[in-house]
Simulated scan of single mutants.
Amino acid sequence: MPARRTAAASAALGLAPLALTALAAAPAAAHGSMGDPVSRVAQCYAEGPESPKSAACKAAVAADGTQALYDWNGIRIGDAGGRHRELIPDGRLCSAGNEEFKGLDLPRADWPATGVHGGAYTFRYRVTAPHKGTFTVYLTKPGYDPAKSPAWDDLDLAHPVATATDPVAADGFYTFSGTLPERSGRHLLYAVWQRSDSPEAFYSCSDVTFGGGSGGGASGGSAPAPAASAPTERQIEDGSGRSSAEHHG
């Protein structure tokens, strides 16, 4: 992994996996989210659901409550079957139209972002239940306004930046390669994981800032994310950090 990363990526791929591993026994309806570039929900979870550090994550908790963050791996549509655009309305992409996650759709330009640049990129998708299927990652078009909730027309759907079918999961991540085009400023990556053994699909939004350093992964961008503080495994075990499994029984 590249040595230079934003605090967001460091949180999701350093501190956070310890907590996320402890949630590997989450219910069957919860399976994963983008870890690098870190998704909104994974970043907010890593900051700590009960006391997130960034203003955007605080606003998401105010809108949804904390349980949405404990359910970080469950932004999904059970019967999607490839009908993503048909089922998810504009402005609701980050929540996939799920009311539980509506705080992730808040229109604001200060979501914690991973610094990136054009060129090869290695994506890492945090998974708690592996399944066969295809990952497709889209980037917003030039002129994207990060202060608005993304719509389908904001994405360059004709040119996904990464597509991977049945990658091998290792150490809790699916890892696959893609290529980012040249962009400037803030943009959004939208990941769709469509299972082939079920109509179920999973979705995530990752905020990025173009203009960072060396390639293959995240680097210091113009809007680095704050340091994270995820619940520890002890907190999860003793109940002071609530898992999705505990919530759903």
Rank of each mutant, 00 (worst) to 15 (best):
T165N: 04
V168A: 15
E200I: 01
A42G: 07
L157M: 13
A7H: 11
F101Y: 15
A26R: 02
G220F: 12
E99K: 14
G212A: 15
A26Y: 00
A151R: 13
R183A: 03
C57Q: 14
A62V: 10
C57T: 13
T114C: 04
A228K: 05
R76T: 14
P52R: 08
G97E: 07
G249Q: 14
V208R: 00
T136F: 06
R92A: 15
Y144R: 02
Y45R: 08
G119A: 06
A147T: 12
G74H: 02
A120S: 12
P150Q: 06
S196T: 15
G178M: 06
G81E: 08
C57G: 10
G91C: 04
V208A: 02
E246K: 11
G14Q: 12
I236K: 02
R5L: 13
P199S: 06
P146D: 02
R126C: 07
Q43G: 12
G14A: 11
D156M: 11
P37M: 04
A55W: 08
P17Q: 08
T21W: 07
K148R: 13
T179W: 06
T165D: 08
A42Y: 05
T21C: 08
A29N: 03
P112K: 01
G65L: 12
G216V: 06
A8L: 15
R234C: 07
V127Y: 03
G221N: 09
S196F: 02
E200Y: 01
T179F: 01
A7M: 14
A46S: 15
C57D: 12
Q43A: 12
A19I: 00
L20W: 06
V61I: 10
A228T: 15
D166V: 00
A46K: 01
P199D: 09
A151D: 11
G118N: 05
G178H: 04
A3T: 12
K141R: 14
G74V: 03
H117S: 14
Q67A: 14
A19L: 08
G215R: 02
T122Q: 12
L139C: 01
G172Q: 03
S204Q: 05
N98V: 13
E100L: 14
S54P: 04
A62Y: 08
H117G: 05
G97N: 08
L106T: 11
L155Q: 02
S39N: 11
K102L: 07
D207Q: 07
T136R: 15
T114H: 02
G119P: 03
W111H: 00
S39E: 04
H248P: 00
A59H: 07
D197S: 05
H159P: 07
T128G: 07
P199G: 08
R83S: 14
A63Q: 13
G48V: 10
A170F: 07
A29T: 10
R5Y: 10
H84N: 13
T140M: 04
R124I: 04
A11S: 15
S222I: 03
P112T: 10
L18P: 01
R195N: 02
D90V: 09
S51V: 04
S177W: 03
Q67I: 11
S214W: 12
L93D: 12
E99S: 13
